[in-house]
């Protein structure tokens, strides 16, 4: 994505520095992504200590695997989000905690690198604006699909709709978001 193209080299530089053993790069990655990852993890876990631990686990895994990071397979943010979601689901299953999706909240105020932070803030704004264009039914299906560990079949039962309808709504919601993000780059 074009807005990520400006941020990506900086992210990749951090990963390269981490691969070379630069702990300060890890610290910067924490400042850049820690709170956003915590926002994701919070969808699955309640306890603040658990959330901090999962975010630390994700960044620690990034530190240990920085040398094998392959940018051709996806951006640093995709990598971190994938790790965070997977670890949050594992932890929530271990704790047997389920949490309803939280209400949307206003944007964060801190910034480290103005260029990167501006990119992230703009992207967040575009995503939030795009979310408002989704039908309530599409948004509900998307939230349950991505911010819970329910399977598609479980989501169908929970929403009281056929499995095929769940898939259609999630697919439609994702394509609308994708188009909105693509449109914001032009």
């Amino acid at each position: 994505m074009a807005d990520a193209k400006q941020a990506t080299p900086a992210d990749q530089d951090l990963i390269a520095a981490m691969a070379a053993g630069d702990a300060e790069a890890l610290r910067t990655l924490n400042v850049r992504y820690g709170r956003a990852l915590a926002g994701l993890v919070r969808r699955f876990l309640k306890d603040e200590a658990d959330i901090e631990e999962v975010v630390a686990d994700v960044l620690w895994q990034a530190w240990r695997e920085a040398k094998s990071f392959d940018p051709s397979r996806g951006s640093v943010s995709v990598w971190l989000v994938t790790l965070a979601r997977s670890r949050a689901i594992d932890r929530s299953r271990a704790l047997r905690v389920r949490k309803q999706p939280l209400a949307e909240q206003p944007a964060a105020q801190w910034a480290l690198d103005p260029g990167v932070e501006l990119d992230q803030a703009m992207r967040a704004r575009v995503v939030r604006a795009a979310l408002t264009t989704l039908d309530a039914s599409e948004r509900a299906a998307l939230e349950l699909a991505y911010f819970s560990d329910f399977s598609q079949s479980e989501i169908a039962v929970r929403l009281g709709i056929p499995l095929g309808t769940v898939k259609t709504r999630v697919r439609s919601a994702m394509m609308k978001l994708r188009r909105a993000l693509a449109g914001s780059r032009q």
Binding site: L40, Q109, R123
Partner: peptide
């Protein structure tokens, strides 16, 4: 990338 943007944009201030 879209999914990651969604994950990183929805709720980040909850952690603040």
């Amino acid at each position: 990338e879209t999914a990651a943007a969604l994950a990183l944009s929805l709720d980040e201030s909850a952690a603040t």
